[in-house]
């Protein structure tokens, strides 16, 4: 009995995604039949995938943190910081001035991306060091970091949008790509999903991440340097968030310190819907991506149905709580 339930737990998020998709197909067919072909169109799939990219990449990083029993509330701010750093660093290498042959080389765009990822990873490093060495719960540390990083982003961006010359990166999040079919960002998401899956399942690092989240004391007893691995995990989460931030820049076409407010909640929700447990020890790359996709299908469906955004928020919140409740139920069954 318990085996069936545990196995079912693995595919629950997937069933949820299909369920949400079918519900919306049904609802749209019933109430907005004109929009149905649009909802089911390839074009819409491409858009949904593109829109999943930022939350999806952030959520993959968050998956490591949540499996290890931690949390990071600062990722929304880190995404904003990453857009600003990408833009500002790239502008250092820009030629000409705004409106006057303003241009930037691919090299400097690349440097901008790398700088953003490094800056984001540093934020994670700071969180990791403070929470392990200072023995402060990560909820509080990252709540603080959320403010601090947002402040730094505004500081670097002088509290306004950072415009950049036109460049190829800005096409990474165009929903329809002429040669690649999907937006380039979607392939980055795919690559990171597979990597995360492999790392979590087949490497010692992944094993330690699960062990630390499942029982920190046992991990310590088995000779795992818990603090060091926690720091690495937060840094890694920062780096993933940095990549998400670069994708955010690609979407906006500029750096924006006020972007992605509250996005940490979507990111955490994606992990939890995908089977991640805030008690640690559980979660998976595939579950997380399915969670992120579900959120996006929900949004897209609501838009087609003409559901006002406040109702969307209520639905979204309810789904997060329901996912957590299902998780509880799963555990209860497994125990007995």
């Amino acid at each position: 009995m318990k085996n069936i339930f545990a196995k079912l737990g693995m595919i629950l998020p997937f069933l949820g995604l299909i369920f949400v998709f079918l519900i919306f197909t049904g609802l749209i067919a019933a109430f907005e039949p004109d929009s149905l072909s649009r909802f089911l169109s390839m074009r819409n799939m491409q858009t949904v995938l593109m829109q999943t990219t930022i939350v999806g990449i952030g959520a993959l990083g968050m998956t490591f943190v949540i499996i290890s029993g931690g949390i990071d509330l600062s990722v929304g701010s880190i995404i904003a910081l990453a857009t600003v750093v990408t833009a500002s660093v790239m502008n250092l290498g820009a030629l000409g001035t705004y409106g006057n042959d303003w241009a930037v080389s691919g090299f400097w765009v690349f440097i901008g991306c790398i700088s953003a990822i490094v800056a984001a990873a540093l934020c994670g490093l700071v969180t990791g060091v403070i929470s392990t060495k200072g023995k402060i719960v990560p909820f509080i540390v990252t709540l603080g970091m959320m403010q601090v990083v947002r402040g730094i982003a505004k500081w670097i961006g002088k509290n306004e949008m950072v415009r950049t010359p036109d460049n190829a990166l800005q096409t990474f999040m165009d929903p329809v790509h002429t040669t690649l079919f999907f937006a380039p960002g979607v392939y980055i998401l795919l690559f990171l999903t597979i990597s995360t899956f492999l790392v979590l399942k087949y490497t010692v690092f992944g094993r330690y991440t699960y062990a630390i989240g499942s029982s920190e004391n046992t991990a310590r007893l088995c000779g795992i340097a818990v603090s060091r691995y926690r720091i690495i995990i937060y840094t890694l989460c920062g780096a993933f968030t940095g990549v998400a931030g670069v994708m955010q820049y690609a979407t906006l076409g500029s750096g924006s310190p006020t972007e992605a407010v509250g996005l940490e909640l979507d990111i955490i929700a994606a992990v939890v819907i995908g089977g991640g447990s805030l008690d640690g020890g559980e979660g998976s790359a595939l579950g997380t991506i399915i969670g992120a996709l579900m959120l996006q299908v929900l949004r897209s469906g609501c838009v087609m149905l003409g559901v006002p955004s406040y109702i969307q928020e209520i639905i979204l919140g309810s789904i997060i709580v329901a996912a957590a409740a299902i998780d509880r139920l799963k555990h209860k069954k497994a125990k007995k």
């Binding site: 010692v204 062990a211 499942s214 029982s215 004391n217 046992t218 991990a219 007893l221 000779g223 795992i224």
Partner: peptide, 29 residues
């Protein structure tokens, strides 16, 4: 450990993982 529940074993993880936890080293499993 005297405390199997909270320290000796990672209760939520499998028998296999608990058996090898103090010995897994390197990069891949």
């Amino acid at each position: 450990s005297e405390d199997r529940k909270a320290e000796g074993l990672a209760q939520g993880m499998s028998i296999a993982i608990n058996t090898t936890l103090s010995s897994v080293k390197g990069v891949f499993i």
